[in-house]
Design a protein around this nucleic acid. Structure first.
Lengths: 142, 142
DNA sequence: TCAATTTCGGATATTTAACTCCTTATAAAT
DNA sequence: ATTTATAAGGAGTTAAATATCCGAAATTGA
């Protein structure tokens, strides 16, 4: 896996919220049900994301969460790293201690490229873009 | 990270053994010291690798481990997956439940390619090749 | 034969991630 | 006001990964 579960849950929740119309509030428990995420655990994650400014939260009856502009304009990578720390930290796929740009192991350069590609893949589009494109895809398939 | 620590330790140990001359035995504790791996923990991993046939083990005074042909001819991926199970299982970087080849999310195809590339990177060369090429690199740099 | 050394195998401990539960604060509906 | 519904926050539990410890078995050297 490339994220922790916590990070994965965070993204799933954010992308879910990003696909809702901007004026409604969604309850934590609804997201949990729809996305099949442990309810109380997700609640904690949303709580953190509210602190980071990725969602706005409203207490009390009729309350819930909605995504913020900040999150819509952020990349998946940014949000995940905020939640779980650096993504793909392994120095090199060989794990060799001495492996570095100066003393590269045989896989080092290729691995560096791939790692960059992964980071690019999840950072070059905004959450908004990903969500919109995904919605389009689902429509077409019907 | 792309491997668990256990998997990483296993590879480091295997690559270390692959770089030793074929007639000597190396003690678990030596590998641990040289590769900076928790000694007792590594011992367990070597024990498992002995069962899998990746190393031969010799008890008693003067005993230790040496790598087998099987391991030298295996890829890093094969060995890691034997130790820790499938590498990079996450369905997709978006984590979306509905995401699949039929209903691909916007990152799905690119991610599939990258995942294949990673697998190729760590499976197309044998441990022997990687070890030899790395030894060459280290020589040149002196 | 005995002592020393090394792996083996099982048990235990520690750490971290994942998950749950309970109480409080807040807001809306009755 | 009171009830109901929701998030916030703190504490606790479970599970899995990581790490340590110890006695047994095997092998070598004295």
């Amino acid at each position: 896996m490339i994220y922790t579960k916590t990070g994965e849950y965070a993204i799933r929740a954010i992308l879910f919220l990003a696909r809702q119309s901007s004026d409604i509030l969604v309850m934590s428990s609804d997201i949990a049900k729809k996305e099949d995420i442990p309810s109380h655990y997700l609640a904690k994650i949303l709580q953190r994301m509210a602190k980071y400014g990725y969602v706005d939260s409203y207490k009390g009856r009729g309350g819930g969460f909605k995504i913020t502009k900040l999150a819509l304009d952020s990349s998946i990578l940014e949000i995940v790293e905020r939640i779980e720390g650096p993504v793909i930290t392994l120095k090199c796929v060989t794990g060799l201690k001495e492996c570095s740009d100066e003393h590269p192991c045989p896989l080092h350069d290729e691995w560096s490229k791939l790692r960059d590609n992964i980071h690019y893949l999840i950072s070059s589009k905004s959450v908004r873009q990903v969500a919109e494109e995904y919605t389009e895809t689902l429509k077409r398939k019907v």
